[in-house]
Nucleic acid binder design. Structure first.
Length: 490
DNA sequence: TGCGCGGTGGTACTAACAGG
DNA sequence: CCTGTTAGTACCACCGCGCA
């Protein structure tokens, strides 16, 4: 049986479908961050049902789901949630189906904020599947999140969601969908040998998440052929990891990535560094004590949880602040974590206004993020606008030191992200020992922390992990800053 | 004066990268 | 999945120039 999601994988890259079916163990595990994404999608699905008050929920998947769907239709139901249809080797579970006269209108709910490339084919697959099982389809719609909506009071389903009529686009795409479905079915049935041959001729290596996993089976000349199709960062990563050898990359492309020597050095653990001492000294001379090292953790909900928020607006629920009052002084630490299921904006802003001095530089990593959050906080909490704006005026982006090339190391692999810079500049600080490993994980932990159903014991553990992670982030900045200062004096 | 060519510059779009 | 920025590219109008 060809499912809708597997069909969409096939459209992305034909080898993906074969791999999903035959080598599922290669699939990346579902971590907390990915699970959160799914949860957000489910929340939007649930909300979209409010657009159709008298819907009947259809339980079950595959054959059981199809049986339940058939009996609901036979019973006279006219609005179906999650009905399943199977026919002619394909199966799909729709979101919402509404009877209009003699035919059924189809609604596909997405948590995206607009129409994406795959949505038409998504609906086209469903349309084919429904027609194969003898259902007459009328119009086909996409329901997506409206990111212009601002919550005031109870969330209005008709405000937070937008419905787009894609009937014409889907009809136009039907012949292509039918052809591709036939091709996908053939791919599904390929033998192991034929499947491996398919991998070697992968049609979309640039976007295929499997490439690093199966690259070992690809002939060298094939790698040479696909290298120009890869995004530069990905090619660089694969070269650094040794998945692709420098000799298998076209010379001009390799040259533009720093040449074969860069990757040989990286593997031989003889990194190339470039430190602009005078530039660093000039840069840090402008900083004013006390130095504040600030980091936020945020949560973005597709359906806004609080008044004044738009869909996907980042709610700041936590910060960590390290303060250095004078050069070589003792490091102080302040932190805040909002653990109730209410709008964290006011408590966070109030604590911050208390913890941060009215003078002194505020050092962050990737200024845009924290500065934008402060702007939003100022809008949400007008009484604290002055201290929040003041923070932005004193902000200094430590990432710019790397971005502007004042401190470079080949082991950064061309990236200026904290994840890449920290292990090189301050190897002693490791994220691995914590349960919460990065910002996305932290964002995943917050709804669980604020959920009244979470046990006290679990909350305590979550609180500890969230605080520890955020603290480590600012500590990392402090250590990186010290390392940069030291480098400027050597 | 009209036409085509090539360089310039400004905009409009896209991909990548940073944060969560 | 999102937002926001930036770097690179693609495109087109425009202008000066040579030439008929």
């Amino acid at each position: 049986m060809l499912t809708k999601s597997n069909f969409l994988k096939f459209l992305e890259c034909s080898c993906q479908l074969w791999l999903v079916k035959n080598m599922p163990h290669l699939l990346p595990p579902i971590d907390a961050a990915l699970q959160r994404l799914f949860d957000e999608g489910n929340k939007v699905d649930l909300f979209a049902k409010k657009l159709f008050p008298r819907g009947v929920e259809i339980a079950g998947f595959n054959e059981a789901g199809a049986r339940n769907t058939a009996s609901a239709i036979a019973g006279g139901a006219t609005v179906l949630f999650q009905p399943t249809f199977t026919g002619n080797g394909i199966t799909c579970r729709c979101d919402i189906l509404v009877k209009r006269g003699r035919s059924w209108d189809l609604y596909e709910v997405k948590s995206s904020t607009g129409q994406k490339g795959t949505h038409v084919m998504d609906l086209a697959f469903q349309r084919v599947c429904l027609e194969e099982s003898g259902i007459r389809v009328g119009k086909t719609f996409l329901v997506h999140v409206n990111n212009q909506y601002v919550r005031r009071g109870k969330v209005d389903p008709f405000g937070v969601l937008a419905t787009v009529n894609l009937t014409q686009e889907v009809k136009t795409a039907l012949p292509v969908a039918r052809t591709q479905i036939a091709r996908a079915k053939k791919t599904l049935a390929l033998s192991t040998k034929a499947g491996l041959d398919l991998l070697k001729a992968c049609s979309a290596p640039g976007s295929c998440p499997y490439l690093p996993l199966y690259a070992g089976t690809i002939l060298h000349e094939d790698v040479y052929a696909i290298a120009p199709g890869l995004p530069r960062a990905r090619l660089r990563e694969l070269l650094a990891r040794g998945v692709i050898a420098p000799k298998n990359v076209p010379p001009d492309l390799l040259e533009s990535l720093g040449g074969a020597a860069a990757f040989k050095r990286a593997r031989a653990k003889k990194p190339a560094a470039n430190i602009d001492r005078e530039g660093l000294a000039r840069e840090f001379a402008e900083l004013e004590y006390p130095l504040h090292f600030l980091d936020y953790e945020t949560f973005a909900s597709a359906i806004p949880d609080f008044d004044g928020y738009r869909p996907y607006q980042q709610a700041v629920f936590q910060y960590s602040l390290h303060v250095l009052r004078k050069p070589g002084g003792r490091l102080e630490h302040k932190e805040f974590l909002h653990d109730a299921s209410t709008d964290p904006a006011r408590p966070v802003a109030a604590a911050l206004a208390r913890d941060i001095a009215s003078a002194g530089s505020v050092i962050v990593w990737n200024e845009r993020f924290e500065a934008s959050r402060n702007e939003e906080l100022a809008r949400l909490v007008p009484s604290l606008r002055a201290p929040l704006r003041s923070i932005n005026e004193r902000m200094y982006d430590l990432m710019q030191v790397v971005k502007r090339g004042l401190y470079l190391d080949s082991r950064f692999e061309g990236s200026a992200s904290l994840k890449k810079v920290l292990p090189v500049v301050v190897p002693s600080l490791s994220y691995g020992s914590l349960n919460v490993r990065n910002g996305e994980m932290a964002a995943a932990g917050w709804p669980e922390l604020t959920d009244p159903r979470t046990t006290a014991k679990r909350k305590k553990a979550l609180r500890r992990d969230l605080l520890a992670y955020c603290k480590l982030d600012t500590l990392a900045m402090v250590e990186i800053y010290k390392a940069f200062v030291k480098a400027s004096k050597e």
